[in-house]
Amino acid sequence: MPELPEVETTCRGIAPHIEGQIIKQVIVRQPKLRWPVPETLNRDLTGLCIQSVSRRAKYLLFSTASGTVLLHLGMSGNLRIMSLDQAAGKHDHVDFVFTDGTVLRLNDPRRFGAVLWTTKPAAEHQLLKDLGPEPLLSDFNGELLYSLSKNRKTAVKSFIMDSHIVVGVGNIYANEALFMAGILPTRQAGKVSLARYQKLAECIRVVLQQAILQGGTTLRDFVNETGKPGYFQQRLRVYGRAGLPCVSCNQPLTEIRIANRSTVFCPNCQR
């Protein structure tokens, strides 16, 4: 599944191509995505200018003077910029056609993505209003994690993957950040000290920033806006390396399941 760095990479990649563009037409070939594509989407968007492209959690937001498009890539979706004369493929479900002849095309083989429209402030949308802070912004810090963790018995890995606590810390990045912070993923969230949460918050930020710079993690189905895979996998230190030597102490890495998600850690370096 594309995670925050992949979505941020896509956001940065498509923004220069569609900001300031006027929508000529929206072609919906498959309206049955995770939630139905609004039947009036073409009528609602035709003639509107994309004023800005941004990201909230794993949602892309296309802002116009009349409202906002919320787009989610789902499990395996991707967006590409192309010309209108390029034939649509089997899983090319939605095209945003602009007056200059370019097209923003959503490809979504598993149809878990979404294209929605709201005329209300995007932050008030039911999918966004209860989300936690962005991990790359200043309102996310160790003090926040510590205050929210009090009396929580859930594993700290599950805690930081909760989108009501902080958005965008997917499984891969949770593994990597906990390793960087030296925190055992099974430790109860309520038993992590303030100092360690301060370090963990910074490690989450660093891991995500590194992934964004590398173009996101190479997942099987993920490609960025040019169709190229991300390259952060080259720098993974624990995820996907179960049984291999720890990069810090050379001891074998251990793999377990937490909330049914693969969890890899070093029992020597993490406590």
Rank of each mutant, 00 (worst) to 15 (best):
L4T: 01
P5E: 09
P5H: 09
E6W: 02
E6I: 03
E6Q: 09
V7Y: 01
C11E: 15
C11R: 14
R12T: 03
G13A: 05
H17D: 12
E19M: 10
E19G: 09
K24I: 01
P31H: 01
K32T: 15
L33M: 05
L33E: 06
W35P: 07
E39T: 06
E39M: 12
T40W: 11
R43D: 15
R43V: 12
D44C: 08
L48M: 12
C49T: 15
I50L: 10
V53C: 10
S54T: 14
Y59G: 06
L60Q: 06
F62D: 01
S63I: 11
S66G: 10
T68R: 09
V69A: 04
V69N: 03
V69F: 00
M75T: 07
G77M: 05
I81M: 15
M82P: 07
D85Q: 12
A87W: 09
G89E: 12
G89L: 11
K90Y: 12
F96N: 02
F96E: 03
G101A: 09
T102E: 15
V103N: 00
F112V: 03
G113C: 00
A114M: 14
A114K: 08
L116N: 02
W117T: 09
K120G: 11
K120M: 13
A123T: 14
E124N: 13
L127A: 13
D130E: 14
E134Q: 12
L137S: 10
S138L: 15
F140W: 03
N141S: 11
G142L: 01
G142Q: 01
G142N: 00
L144T: 06
L145S: 02
L145G: 02
S147F: 02
L148H: 03
S149P: 07
N151C: 03
N151V: 02
R152F: 09
R152E: 05
K153D: 05
A155D: 03
F159C: 01
M161P: 04
D162L: 02
N171V: 10
E176I: 06
F179N: 00
F179W: 04
A181Q: 02
G182C: 01
G182Q: 05
P185H: 04
T186I: 10
S193K: 08
Y197K: 03
Q198G: 03
K199Y: 04
L200H: 01
L200K: 06
A201P: 00
A201G: 09
C203S: 13
R205A: 00
V207M: 10
Q209H: 10
A211S: 09
Q214I: 08
Q214D: 15
R220C: 13
E225K: 13
E225V: 15
T226V: 13
T226R: 11
G227V: 12
Y239Q: 00
G240N: 07
G240Q: 06
A242M: 07
L244E: 15
C246D: 07
T254M: 05
I256D: 00
I256C: 05
I258G: 00
A259Y: 08
A259Q: 08
N260A: 13
N260W: 12
